[in-house]
């Protein structure tokens, strides 16, 4: 069973088709890099996969279930543009809240463990509004990973992260891949993405123009795929 199975997805914003008949499958354990220029449909596709918005046509299954199914969503961890944590709650309260919503058995214990993991253990009871940008980013990483999801959806995960957060994200991503999690990430930072990606999916104005194992040529020249299959 594929971790993600997209069958003929169409998504319109008004009359504009942001996704046009997107069909692909992602096997468990793969790391898929979603590539494409700005406006190609990467974020829209990730939002459809996360169940944040519905495709007008086609269906998307996560581990064989419709994406809005509770069990399907429990198996997804999402790190998007927004950090998705509450300013007026403490770091611990935020992680305990999401642990509880995701049905983590010992939500409080898991929250404490992740606070230590992201080096926020000593400020765990402080309100997030008192945190620096880097601290918030690390908390967002903990929020996305604390239920150990078998599928991770990451939208531009390395953009505007500080060095410490990048190192942390790379470490937890590597660990997730090691335990067999499936990772789908959209990014413009091709070099970082190619180090992780086992597969590549290229979008061009909402159309899928390439999907397959990462071409070896992309390690030396990350823009190779754009020249070959996408707009130059």
């Amino acid at each position: 069973m594929n971790a993600v199975e997209a069958g003929g997805l169409w998504k319109y914003y008004g009359d504009y088709p942001a996704l046009r008949d997107i069909r692909f499958g992602v096997e468990p354990g793969q790391c898929l890099a979603l590539l494409g220029r700005n406006g190609a449909g990467k974020t829209t596709l990730l939002r459809v996969m996360a169940g944040l918005t519905a495709a007008q046509r086609g269906e998307l299954k996560v581990f064989g279930r419709p994406v809005r199914d509770g069990q399907a969503r429990a198996s997804i961890g999402v790190l998007g543009h927004g950090i998705g944590v509450y300013e007026e709650l403490s770091a611990f309260e935020n992680l305990r809240l999401f642990g509880s919503l995701y049905g983590v058995k010992d939500a409080a214990g898991t929250a404490r463990a992740w606070l230590d993991r992201v080096s926020l253990g000593n400020v765990g009871d402080s309100l997030v509004r008192e945190f620096s940008r880097g601290m918030r980013q690390r908390l967002a990483v903990a929020r996305a990973f604390l239920h150990e999801p078998p599928l991770l959806l990451l939208d531009e995960p390395f953009t505007s992260l500080d060095d410490r957060s990048i190192a942390l994200l790379q470490a937890v991503l590597a660990e997730s891949l090691k335990r067999g999690a499936t990772v789908i990430l959209s990014t413009h930072q091709l070099r970082e993405a190619m180090e992780l990606a086992t597969h590549v999916l290229l979008l061009d104005r909402g159309k899928l123009t390439f999907h397959g194992p990462r071409p070896a040529e992309m390690l030396a020249d990350p823009t190779w795929l754009y020249r070959r299959h996408g707009e130059a």
């Binding site: 509770g70 069990q71 998007g80 950090i83 929020r143």
Partner: peptide, 15 residues
């Protein structure tokens, strides 16, 4: 809306 918390709630398994 702040910090896109609504998205975090919608993609969580909460019905």
């Amino acid at each position: 809306l702040f910090n896109d918390c609504l998205d975090a709630l919608i993609f969580s398994p909460v019905p």
